[in-house]
Design a protein around this nucleic acid. Structure first.
Length: 842
DNA sequence: CTGGAGACTTGGGACAATGCTG
DNA sequence: CAGCATTGTCCCAAGTCTCCAG
């Protein structure tokens, strides 16, 4: 059911020459684009993090105020920052700067442009399962540059899955209606409070008496030297808050948090700040720098406690049977046997490679002359049963016991959970060494079943500040492999993966940390930047489709696929891994020409997830593919002149720092932004979140984020259906009662049990009917979405691809509490995005 | 220019916590 | 208020991309 390709996706109106300037202004426009809403800005939207602008004192406040100053004087900040912006990244620095100017011209801008946009270009082509509702009126293109350029092609070309899409035309009407709404304050505020109060309890960190000292020293220094310029604000903010927590001001902070939670009095202040200063977001993104550039210093002081190891193996003494006879094993042998035993009812047991690999490794442990000579004659049932019993025991434990156990664990781990980076306490991501296990690769993995041996301190390299105390090795008598003080990297510890010795496992900070937040933000800024380059990029590759130079031609087609289908780059892989492909590694047989310019893609991508999609492509692309396939055998590379480094090198010529993966981010975030703005209607929160979910789903489909259907999916569906039937019967009866009640007759006896019902008045019955109808409707919706989403995983895109600022600003505009969209951890992860301006657009 | 090492992001599924309902 | 479904987190595998030596 491939959909016809949106006609000439690449109709470029603008000469590609004048490029970047233009692009910039376009981008600016897009920022403020939200017609007629500018006044909104003045009114509301607190600086989100209840933290940032609230009570301040002491040193912390000094830092904070420097932040605020930059907020207030946008212009100053901008001029200051743009020249200093990383030269590799020319436009990012000032991208937002003209917010003030921009506002005005923009309307005309796009009105002009819309005229010369061919409708055919605008048309969004996705056939839709069920919601064709999008209103196709005002065929107005809402984006600054009316060329289709900004529409990710993938948005126009759906997968041929049953999950269609909606909306036909670019339609401004939604925007207008949204414009009338004022943004919400409450939810954001809650976040703020959530944060400040959330972190507080943990501060009593044990393992850092030294640390405390360092922190305060550091914070003093900060106040004086910190020149705002080399530290992203997002990060600074964190600092402020956290430092405050530590200091005496923490009490005050908590109070504020509390207040915030209630009504929202603390807003007053923020609003004022906003008014005079305006858009903290902008000053913030002005600061953006590419700190990820390597070889660069990432920290000055780094303190942490290393990592924790799983407890040593406790032998259980249960014997396996070999040819029916019990065999005694050494603890080491038994441990591995147990790892195998517990896999009994997984599908791995049917895989020969798995068993072979396991046997090879286990046999080595058993030794040449062991009684056990093959796996076939081994019966692991006794161990399996023993494990089941242990599991049950655990389950049976009382609540208190479980709690005690958990607390015990917490106590042991607490000190590993935190690191102090440049005086700021940050959560550590994975501070636990991976326990031994059997390697479970995905897909057909040549190494599945191999024994992943235990990691010991001796495998682990610790990276830590020069002046920081070296973490004590948690296993007595052993020691770390090495201590380094490398301030150009962000990992705290690393070791070699025993399964793939040339792969490293690294311990770094959690997703909520400022390091991660910072690079996350950079990632999205890059995607935004692509928005203004995409027109030229598309023009360039369209030209390349017919290039005589075969390498150039392949680059063009590959880029087209990456843009249009959001394919991954596709690095080379060796034979020791599952056989999967990405764009550059597509094999001849992965793409089939089906006539009428339709190409069928069928391959295993990352994690051996199947990608199946049939799309209509540009005729020259179709021809090119036929040409690339000519004289090749299945198994040969489709793009034989290409690899990811060549591709990325080429992309970098088109836009600074552009790489293949940016297209996925761009596609995803753009689609979200676009759909949210087109489809959000007035209504209750649940309806709006459904719109969000729908957009989220489209993105997941574009990115091919799948999940396996839960095993009881069908049971659950039929259960719901049953319930609906029941309710419908009740409804029917109620309607009869209503009729009778109106005629002042008593209700009939209840059909189910024949008992009398209460004699209710018509209003009451009417109310009941409404209630039940609503319930039925809800259940029907539930069934629908469940069915709809049974194979689609929404989480991945939410976590990795959707610019949280789009989400947050949408929530603000539509009074949707952010908690409806983000879980607690995601709120933490996206803390850097919470004070975005409600007008933010990608 | 190439291949491998290293650093960091993205991915699905297992499992634990939480929520809901009879 | 137990028992189960749902949701949220953790785990660790599998990608991308950069850098550097030869």
């Amino acid at each position: 059911m491939a959909v016809e390709a949106s006609d000439g996706p690449v109709t470029f109106k603008k000469s590609s020459a004048s490029k970047s300037n233009q692009l910039h202004s376009e981008m600016k426009n897009s920022d403020s684009y939200d017609d007629g809403q500018s006044n909104r800005k003045t009114s509301d939207v607190p600086a989100s993090n209840g933290q940032s602008s609230s009570s301040l004192n002491g040193k912390a406040s000094a830092i904070e105020s420097s932040v605020d100053i930059s907020k207030e004087s946008n212009l100053k900040t901008y001029t200051k920052s743009s020249p200093s912006a990383n030269s590799k990244f020319p436009s990012l620095g000032n991208k937002n700067e003209s917010l003030l100017e921009k506002k005005i011209p923009k309307c005309d801008d796009f009105e002009d442009e819309e005229d010369n946009t061919p409708l055919s270009d605008i048309r969004m082509k996705m056939n839709n399962d069920n919601d064709k509702k999008a209103t196709p009126n005002a065929l107005k293109k809402s984006y600054e540059d009316s060329d289709d350029d900004d529409i990710p092609l993938s948005a126009r070309l759906p997968h041929n899955t049953n999950l269609g899409e909606s909306s036909s035309n670019y339609d401004d009407s939604d925007k207008q209606e949204t414009a009338s709404k004022l943004s919400v304050k409450r939810p954001l505020d809650e976040i703020g409070s959530l944060h400040s109060s959330g972190k507080k309890p943990k501060l009593s960190d044990p393992g850092s008496s030294i640390n405390a000292k360092q922190i305060s020293v550091r914070s003093d220094a900060k106040v004086e030297e910190e020149d705002d310029d080399d530290i992203p604000i997002s990060r600074k903010k964190n600092k402020v808050v956290k430092l405050m927590d530590k200091s005496s001001s923490s009490k005050k902070l908590t109070n504020v948090a509390k207040v915030n939670k209630g009504a929202a009095p603390s807003f007053k202040k923020k609003e004022k700040l906003k008014k005079s200063g305006n858009e903290s977001e902008h000053s913030q993104s002005t600061k953006l720098q590419l700190s990820s550039g390597d070889g660069q210093k990432k920290w000055t002081t780094l303190v942490h406690n290393g990592i924790i190891f799983p407890p040593p193996y406790k032998p259980h003494g249960v014997k396996i049977l070999y040819k029916g006879k019990p065999v005694t094993l050494t603890p080491e042998q038994e441990e591995v046997a147990t790892l195998f035993a517990v896999m009994r009812d997984t599908e791995y047991m049917e895989k020969e490679i798995f068993k072979d690999n396991f046997w090879n490794d286990w046999r080595e442990l058993l030794g040449e002359n062991h009684v056990i000579q093959n796996l076939k004659d081994c019966d692991f049932t006794p161990i399996y049963d023993w494990c089941q019993i242990e599991k049950d025991k655990k389950k049976q434990m009382s609540l208190e016991e479980k709690k005690a156990l958990r607390e015990e664990k917490m106590k042991q781990e607490e000190k590993y959970m935190w690191a102090i980076v440049d005086g700021v306490k940050e959560k550590v991501g994975n501070f636990r060494a991976e326990p031994p296990g059997l390697f479970r690769g995905r897909g057909v993995h040549p190494k599945m079943g191999k024994v992943k041996r235990r990691i010991r301190p001796n495998d682990v390299v610790i990276n830590i500040g020069k002046d920081a105390p070296i973490p004590e090795c948690p296993i007595p008598g052993e020691s770390w492999a090495e201590i380094t003080h490398d301030d150009t990297v962000t990992w705290l510890a690393k070791w070699r993966d025993p399964i793939k010795p040339n792969k490293l496992k690294m311990v770094s900070l959690a997703a909520s940390s400022s390091w991660k937040g910072q690079s996350d933000k950079e990632k999205y800024e890059k995607a935004r930047m692509l928005k203004s380059y995409i027109g030229n990029i598309r023009a360039a590759y369209t030209k390349g489709f017919t290039s005589k130079d075969i390498t150039k031609q392949q680059i063009a087609v590959a880029t087209y696929f990456i843009d249009k289908l959001a394919l991954r780059a596709g690095n080379e892989k060796d034979d020791e891994e599952a056989d999967t492909v990405g764009c550059c590694t597509l094999k001849v047989e992965n793409v089939t020409a089906e006539g009428h310019n339709k190409l069928k893609f069928d391959f295993l991508g990352k994690d051996s997830i199947k990608y199946e999609n049939t799309v209509e492509v540009e005729p020259p692309v179709y021809k090119a593919i036929l040409k690339f396939q000519k004289d090749k055998q299945p198994g040969d590379d489709l793009f034989d002149k290409l690899d990811t480094s060549k591709l990325n090198a080429h992309l970098k010529e088109l836009m600074p720092n552009l790489t293949a993966k940016v297209f996925r981010t761009f596609n995803a975030s753009f689609t979200l932004d676009d759909m949210l703005n087109k489809e959000t209607k007035d209504g209750v929160v649940a309806e709006k979140t459904a719109v969000y979910q729908h957009a989220n789903k489209q993105v997941a489909i574009i990115c091919n984020h799948q999940r396996s259907v839960s095993k009881n999916h069908s049971t659950q569906i039929s259960k719901l259906n049953e319930k609906i039937d029941e309710l419908q019967a009740v409804l029917k009866e109620l309607k009869i009662d209503l009729d009778r009640a109106r005629k002042e007759k008593p209700p009939l006896k209840r059909s189910s049990d024949g008992k009398n019902k209460r004699n209710l008045n018509p209003e009451a019955i009417g109310k009941k009917i409404a209630q039940i109808s609503a319930k039925i409707e809800k259940m029907q919706r539930d069934i629908h979405t469940k069915e709809d989403l049974k194979t689609v995983a929404l989480g991945t895109s939410k976590i990795n691809y959707l610019d949280p600022r789009i989400t947050v600003s949408w929530c603000k505009r539509h009074e949707v509490p952010i908690e409806k969209i983000y879980t607690k951890t995601l709120l933490e992860k996206f803390a850097w995005a919470m004070d975005v301006d409600p007008d933010f657009r990608i």
